[in-house]
Amino acid sequence: MNRTTAYATSSGLALTKQPVAPAPQACAEMPAPVVRDLRDRGGRSPHALLFGPRDLVVITGLPGSGKSTLMRRAVRGPRIDSQDTRDRWDRRMPRFLPYGLYRPFVRLAHYAGLRSALRSGEGVVVHDCGTQAWVRGWLAREARRRDGILHLLLLDVDPDEALAGQRERGRGVSRYAFRRHRTANTRLLRAVTEGTLPAGCTSAILLDRAAADTLRRIAFTG
């Protein structure tokens, strides 16, 4: 039986585990949704988050909130980040070519890489911008198919701080796109805070910038 560890102490010891129901019983006996709020702890939050060997983890938040930085620093195991895909394409393309012209190909490459990673059956951490709800639906179906669990890591970062993060990395999104991200993120944050998770998600962990900076390891057991 696949068991999920959705929260760990600073030393990396698991505190809670949630059993996954066998496939025939999944609809009736899936674990109740769990929300863990690690915000406002002044850095006294876990250094490690551990998940089951077949679980899927979605990291979401505003552009510039630090998702890619967190993934590069903390993820131990397969990770699929759309920013990595864009960076690879940017290195190949002529500098004079606007990103908008080859953006569709970047997205296709990103989703092809995600599909390949999911087919391995291993645990995967996935970057999610928060505006593509169909991606979470896809991951939720895949988690059920592999007898795993879908977890949400939500970075709650102030919009001004996220914009500063975009300026720091020298790359941002348009005002229109940022408004769309902000609306979707605000709606998701409100729902999760009230205990309502996106369809297919079994657990959600809320992180502020301090909690994200404290986190050093995101890994899969087994």
Rank of each mutant, 00 (worst) to 15 (best):
G77C: 04
R54M: 01
R72C: 02
D208E: 04
A162R: 12
V157S: 06
L56F: 01
G100R: 15
Q25D: 08
L38M: 13
T4S: 13
S203F: 00
R91A: 08
V157P: 05
A162H: 08
G113A: 09
R179K: 15
G77M: 05
D81E: 13
L154D: 00
R44G: 02
E122W: 12
M1K: 14
L49G: 01
E168R: 15
R136M: 03
A74L: 08
A177H: 10
P78M: 09
V124H: 01
A6L: 15
V20P: 03
A199E: 15
L150Q: 02
P159Q: 14
Q132L: 10
F105G: 04
C129V: 12
V58F: 00
D87A: 11
L215S: 04
L49Y: 00
G170L: 08
G66P: 07
I59H: 00
S68T: 15
R76C: 05
D160P: 05
E194I: 03
R141F: 01
A191C: 02
T221R: 14
D128R: 02
D90S: 04
T16W: 08
R54S: 02
V58M: 04
L150K: 01
A177N: 12
A26G: 04
P94E: 09
P198T: 09
V192Q: 08
L139R: 11
Y111P: 02
A117C: 02
L154T: 01
G100C: 05
M71W: 03
A212N: 05
F178Y: 13
R3D: 04
Y99P: 03
F96C: 04
L118P: 01
I218H: 03
R216T: 11
L163R: 15
Y7F: 12
A143N: 08
D156N: 09
L189W: 11
L70P: 00
G12D: 13
V192G: 02
A48S: 14
D147H: 15
A6E: 13
A28D: 13
P63V: 11
R95C: 02
R44F: 13
A6K: 12
A140I: 03
L153M: 12
